[in-house]
Nucleic acid binder design. Structure first.
Length: 195
DNA sequence: TAAGTGATCTCT
DNA sequence: GAGATCACTTAA
């Protein structure tokens, strides 16, 4: 039947502005074919690393052997080892020569970037490979629409070294399916949230 | 809250 | 080549 790859997202899907893509990725399925078994995990949390000026990004200090894949056109996996223990899975985004990528921080039951790769058995061998079914690791459209009010943003994790400007950017996107739909028309303007 | 862990990067 | 750093997790 070969149905499994029908809704696979094409590489062109990732060749768009990173921040815009972050919202799109929430609710999409992260797919992994391993030993004849197909795993599908809905993406729940991501983080953007966008452009050469983003001081939190590996690309902020220019091109190196490790980060070179970030400079490619979107649709490739960027996988690297963190703290000597955990593999981080990123999808390269945007146009060629513009370094950017999105870190997959949560999918399915896995609620941390190191857990995602552990659950899916992802290591360095996926680095620089395209996100297509033939690779064994790709994404597909799950056919659901994530509403804007279900997307929560906040600063990225563990990037204090980037300085206040970049560390505080709301580049972390979390899918909160249970978030209440904002009332419309009533006592207005989404309440004056003073904090 | 602290430590493990090893690739990578920035100096000598 | 040596030393510091790090897009995290787990066990207290």
């Amino acid at each position: 039947m070969q149905v499994q790859a029908r809704n696979a997202l094409p590489l062109s899907f990732f060749q768009r502005p990173t921040l815009e893509l972050c919202r799109e990725l929430l609710g999409k399925n992260l797919c992994r074919m391993r030993g004849g078994e197909l795993l599908r995990l809905p993406i729940t949390e991501v983080e953007a690393y966008d452009g050469p000026e983003d001081l939190a990004s590996h690309a902020s200090r220019g091109r190196t052997a490790r980060n070179s894949v970030m400079f490619e056109a979107g649709g490739l996996w960027y996988v690297y080892l963190c703290y000597g223990v955990h593999w981080m899975l990123n999808i390269v985004t945007g146009d060629k020569d513009y370094p950017s990528a999105i870190l997959i921080r949560g999918a399915g039951e896995a609620n941390g970037p190191g857990k995602v790769t552990k659950e899916l058995g992802i290591k360095a061998d996926f680095n620089k490979r395209p996100a297509i079914p033939a690779t064994g690791l790709w994404m597909e459209d799950a056919g659901l629409h994530v509403e804007e009010h279900q997307v929560k943003t906040c600063p990225r994790v563990g990037v204090g070294y980037a300085g206040p400007i970049w560390a505080e950017k709301p580049y972390r996107f979390i899918w909160t399916p249970d978030a209440p739909k904002p009332r419309r028309g009533t006592t207005g303007m989404g309440s004056v949230t003073r904090k």
